[in-house]
Design a protein around this nucleic acid. Structure first.
Lengths: 148, 148
DNA sequence: CTGGAGCTTACCATCATGGCAAGGTCAAGC
DNA sequence: GCTTGACCTTGCCATGATGGTAAGCTCCAG
């Protein structure tokens, strides 16, 4: 372990420069609910953080950084399993960037697939909506289509 | 109840023209798994169908028609709750088509929203992928972005 | 009559997230 | 110092659509 203060990994609960937070503040700062932070810890996505004598979780800047990473990945649609792999790659200084690229490309493919499916639904539904007069009469091409 | 043979609703287990099926055949014919057919029955989306003396479910053409309606709606992305409403409208001969149109339009809006979200993710990820050399070196703009 | 396919119910799992309840802790104000 | 309210802890249950599995019953063909 390097003691170089510019290395983010050297910041931990022992650092005098680290402001410690309870889970509520960490939740606010990271944009992840306290509930989910505990959940991520439980499934092993987050390491177990420090605790006060009375059992309150304590988050330092390093932990917060990790939480933010998770949130960014989550916001980009990665599953927790995928986020776990991304974190592994992030922490592994020897990773080849090709590995990251491959993983993310695969996710992009999945997204494109899902988008295509939703667009197909949307197009068909829009077509049906456009073909429905939408007045007081019961006659309805939308229901007709669903029924046949 | 009308006895008019051209009225689909008059076809039931008592009709001599209705071929009865077990759940497996109904599943094949409708494209919905037997498991899900039972589930739809349990949550009240399907009425309870007839049973043999020994308890096997029996599906007639009317039931099959209903199952197909459900499958079409499901394939267009409607939730079971929404499908329940669609079925109500379908069965209600007095419905105004405007009501159907409104429901479906709302669903289209939801789909568009979801598509937009996924597209935003996809675009950002694609941008990151394009900016990553993807070779043996550990340097990786994708992870950098997630970390900051 | 037997074997295998098909049916029954009931329970558990997924995935990400929220809610609730019962109880402990902490800090601020009186 | 004591009270109060905000915050924390764990644990359990729920969502929604779907799949799996297990134990046991039924049906049909050979």
């Amino acid at each position: 372990m390097s003691a170089d203060a510019t290395d983010a990994r050297s910041i931990d609960a022992r650092s005098m420069y680290t402001r410690l937070m309870n889970i509520g503040e960490a939740a606010q700062a990271s944009g992840i609910s306290a509930k989910m932070i505990r959940h991520y810890e439980q499934i092993g996505l987050m390491p177990k953080v420090a605790r006060t004598f009375s059992g309150y979780r304590l988050y330092n800047q390093n932990d917060l950084h990790l939480l933010c990473f998770i949130r960014h990945a989550r916001d980009l649609g990665f599953s927790t399993v995928q986020i776990g792999k991304l974190l592994e790659l992030w922490h592994n200084q020897q990773r080849p960037s090709s590995e990251v690229k491959a993983m993310v490309s695969e996710h992009v493919r999945t997204l494109k697939q899902k988008i295509a499916e939703l667009e197909a639904m949307q197009a068909e539904l829009q077509r049906l909506v456009d073909g429905c007069h939408g007045d007081q009469r019961p006659d309805c091409p939308i229901l007709d289509r669903l029924a046949n």
